[in-house]
């Protein structure tokens, strides 16, 4: 959890805006540090977190969260965290073994044309399950869905339209119905291209998700190239009006990722420059 980012987004684990759809995107850079931030943030905020980890193994996320001061293993045991390990699940579908019952969440691997309905049902059941209440388990706050990252679904053969349907259903359930939050990561490769609304690709997906979301964090490399003291820039854009009449508000920050955290500063005010 990066406190500097919290103050930028005007959120603390004790009080944060509910019902938000946060879109994290990157281009020629790596925004996964933001996913780790949001994961530790919502776990500290005592939210019920459903994490679709499609890129890395559980131990990878666990090791990083440990550094940020949150134990994923404990959270999972307490029932606060529901972790879908995409790598393992897909393996159990691609190489079926009798012993593994497995969830049906990754069913789209068998036939990508059917869409992501099963994955959505997995999300819905994990965010809305009350745990029965009989064990006297702890009560958790509003549900949170984190996806790292949705562009992997494109690589697995799912169409971008199906991903948009999936995100729409997640938004309707998590954000609107349960007043929880969603954080999704999309990666775009290469330069920004004018691709005339063609129906595929991560660019199109990014546009579609941008129309759905309420807050975007877009991470880019520095336009001037690599720098040792500045790792890139992040553009924060609020898209929904928040009562006070402001529609869209954009802010640009440069950042540097440290061993245990990250610092954000206004462009041109890094220690290397001043």
């Amino acid at each position: 959890m990066f406190t500097e980012l919290n103050s930028i987004l005007n959120a603390t684990p004790d009080s944060f805006t509910q019902g938000e759809f946060i879109l994290v995107s990157d281009r020629q850079s790596d925004a996964s540090f933001l996913i780790h931030h949001f994961l530790s943030f919502y776990l500290r905020a005592r939210c019920k977190v459903c994490f679709l980890g499609l890129v890395q193994s559980f131990s990878h996320y666990s090791a990083i969260s440990q550094r940020l001061g949150v134990s994923l293993t404990q959270a999972r045991e307490k029932g606060q965290l529901i972790f879908l390990e995409g790598l393992k699940e897909s393996l159990s579908i691609l190489i079926p073994q009798e012993t593994t019952t497995g969830s049906q969440a990754m069913d789209f691997l068998r036939d990508p044309t059917v869409g992501l309905q099963r994955l959505y049902e997995f999300v819905r059941s994990s965010v809305s399950s009350d745990g029965g209440g009989e064990e006297g388990v702890e009560e958790w706050g509003p549900p949170v869905l984190l996806v790292d990252d949705v562009s992997v679904l494109l690589s697995l053969g799912v169409s971008a339209g199906a991903v948009l349907d999936f995100s729409h259903y997640c938004r309707a359930t998590v954000c609107s119905q349960l007043q929880g939050n969603i954080v999704m990561l999309v990666r775009c490769h290469g330069e920004e291209a004018e691709d005339d609304g063609s129906d595929e690709g991560s660019e199109w997906l990014l546009k579609g998700l941008t129309h759905q979301c309420s807050l975007t964090l877009h991470v880019q490399g520095l336009p001037t190239g690599y720098c040792r003291d500045i790792h890139g820039q992040v553009e924060v854009c609020w898209r929904r009006r928040r009562g006070d009449g402001q529609h869209t508000q954009k802010k640009l920050f440069q950042y540097k990722v440290h061993d245990k955290g990250a610092s954000f500063f206004a462009p041109g005010t890094s220690s290397a420059v001043l």
Partner: peptide, 22 residues
């Protein structure tokens, strides 16, 4: 945020389930 009387506003929700999944 709509201040006008919403009595004459009829909302047909296709938001929660536009594809009939649920």
């Amino acid at each position: 945020g709509l201040t006008a009387s919403t009595q004459r506003l009829h909302f047909h929700s296709a938001y929660t389930d536009p594809l009939g999944w649920t």
